[in-house]
Amino acid sequence: MNEFVLQLLNGLDKGGAYALIALGLTLVFGTLGVVNFAHGALFMIGAFCAVVFSRLLQLETVTVDPERLTPWGSPMEIRTPLVQAWLGDFGAFLVQYSVPLSIFFAIPVMLLVGLAMERGLIRFFYKRTHAEQILVTFGLAIVIQEIIKANFGANPIPVSAPAALSGSADVGAWLGLGGGIFYPWWRLAYLGFAISIVALVIVFLQFTTYGMVVRAGMEDRQTVGFLGINIQRRFTVVFGIAAVVAGLAGVMYTPIVPPSYTMGMDFLVLSFVVVVVGGMGSVGGAVLAGFLLGILQSFASMNEIKSILPGIDQVIIYLVAVVVLLTMPRGLMGRKGVMET
């Protein structure tokens, strides 16, 4: 039972990341009709926003303290982050919470990156075939990846979670299952964060006038245009939002897996599978499929299951994708008539 709960949490956690990335991907497809292979790169840019932000906060000033000596007799150097030197305790707090705080740094950056990408490249590819869209965004993904590699090196860069959230929570006690189920606080925070972002996006689409117009545009772009609405501009904004969501998923993911330049490509394939399983262009489908595949992947990696079907943990996601694609032409929740062949 303990193992079961643990794997369920693991799965929800992974599923959260998949859902966040797939959400943006499916939104872009549903609105602009573009297959964006550079979406994984946006996730990676987000993660590196966190790296940059925490490096900025950790810029240090070095003072020499002549009173104290190092063990080998030279005066001790005291390194204090600049922010701490200027702001005192509040500065220390900023340094400590650099990862969650980089969300505020990442939102404008990602919005800019997203809008630049859409205006600068994607809009010229609305009318071209999906194959060409895949190819050009694949090229873009390589370029972004290499720029990151040139600036940050090829090794993963560890970024630490705030000390208050770095331990583990006694989940078993909360659920009344007795002790013994410990789960890292930060991963619980990630799960909560993922759920709230997904909820925010869905609320935006379902319950605001802006979102309603966007949904109407997904349904019938031409008619919305006839009503005198600049639907193109709204779709561009949606692309920006998708970039922000992917970027935030990356920011919060940094303490879980140290960011490296390959993380975008690693997640890209999985999130594409998630999108097609959920149904191209379906927001609900992407979220459902994200969590579903995350949980399935976790359960497949349990020893009991691996002993029956060796290697199942490696292929389960792709296997599910193949079965879904062959039996349900438009995925789990795809709209009727959209991309069925």
């Binding site: 999906h130 194959a131 097609v276 792709y318 994708a321 694609l325 062959l326 032409p329 991309m339 062949t341």
Partner: peptide, 14 residues
């Protein structure tokens, strides 16, 4: 059995 982007994803999955 599928074409277009679904074919790409299927081959990628395999």
């Amino acid at each position: 059995k599928r074409s277009g982007i679904y074919f790409s994803i299927l081959t990628l999955a395999f």
